[in-house]
């Protein structure tokens, strides 16, 4: 299995994967530092005027890019939404992190008993969890909005967190229970002999052992929340509470907006999450590959 592939083929595959997965993102990085008029002008090389960071300056300081002030530039190309990107990143981080933590906190115990115990109504509750995401979210927007309104949470991050948490929970429970089931029985028998209560076996043995898998599952909940658009859109209030998916959609739907500014927004939105994902993923993959679960 570990027989080495021809180094050329390895390189080829790796390049293909990098280009396919990362290509569009690399494009946005390039697009963010090249002004529109150079981009649209086939006769000029992409970097013929060097790198241009005006759009970044605009997003963070509000100072308008020179190129849009001169030559009767279309003012509509500048969108206020771009200025909301940094703030929305912060909002999204709060929402997605909360949803992730809540998912693990609420979902892990359920996943544990599903994976390791037989109990009354197990099949019924499991089927309920598995089938609940079947209904398309868009059909539930109105009633869920009404419920969140009744709770007085419309326009707050708490409302969005609640919806995102509930949306990700079935998957969290399903994925985590697969991981908990893989753990060897003998460890839990040893724990039972060592005077562990059910909760202690879960808390002190199962959870630390499944840490990489818990990380992967948490990442999933985080991503689900971070990229969710519809409920974020309906439930978020003014610009100060909007998550990044809503702000980016507003920016993207504006057909006049400058490519360069749009790409800048995209790139700024990607970087912090990318850092987080790389960090968590390293931990998850290395944990999984080193077989920490198997002991």
């Amino acid at each position: 299995m570990r027989r080495n592939l021809n180094p050329f083929l390895t390189f080829l595959f790796a390049t293909l994967i990098v280009l396919f997965a990362g290509g569009p993102v690399i494009l946005s990085a390039v697009g963010s530092v090249v002004p529109d008029r150079i981009m649209m002008d086939a006769s000029k090389g992409l970097f013929s005027e060097g790198l241009n960071f005006e759009t970044y300056r605009y997003v963070f300081t509000g100072q308008l890019p020179d190129s849009y002030l001169a030559e009767n530039a279309n003012r509509a190309m500048i969108s206020d939404a771009a200025r909301q990107v940094p703030r929305s990143l912060l909002n999204s981080s709060v929402i997605a992190l909360s949803s992730m933590v809540l998912n693990l906190l609420l979902g892990a115990p359920a996943a544990y008993v599903f994976a390791r115990y037989v109990f009354p109504a197990k099949k019924l509750t499991f089927m309920f969890l598995i089938l609940s995401p079947l209904v398309p979210a868009v059909a539930l927007v109105t009633p869920i909005y009404m419920m969140i309104q009744a709770l007085g949470l419309v326009g707050t991050q708490a409302g969005i967190i609640l919806v995102h948490t509930a949306k990700a929970l079935p998957f969290t429970v399903l994925i985590l229970s697969v991981f908990f089931r893989k753990m060897p029985n003998e460890i839990f028998e040893a724990a039972a002999l060592d005077h562990c209560s059910r909760f202690q076996a879960f808390w002190r043995i199962a959870l630390p052992l499944a840490l990489p898998s818990v990380g992967a599952t948490g990442l999933f909940a985080f991503m689900l929340s971070y990229s969710e658009y519809m409920f974020s859109m309906v439930l978020s209030g003014d610009a100060a509470t909007r998550p990044v998916s809503v702000v980016m959609a507003a920016l993207a739907r504006n057909t006049d907006v400058s490519w360069s500014l749009l790409n800048t927004g995209i790139f700024i939105a990607i970087v912090p999450t990318l850092v987080l994902v790389v960090f968590v993923w390293r931990f998850v993959v290395e944990g999984l590959l080193s077989g920490a679960v198997k002991g």
Partner: peptide
């Protein structure tokens, strides 16, 4: 993982 970190609109 890059595609994962992007909201659908992006």
């Amino acid at each position: 993982l890059l595609p994962w970190v992007l909201p659908g609109a992006i």
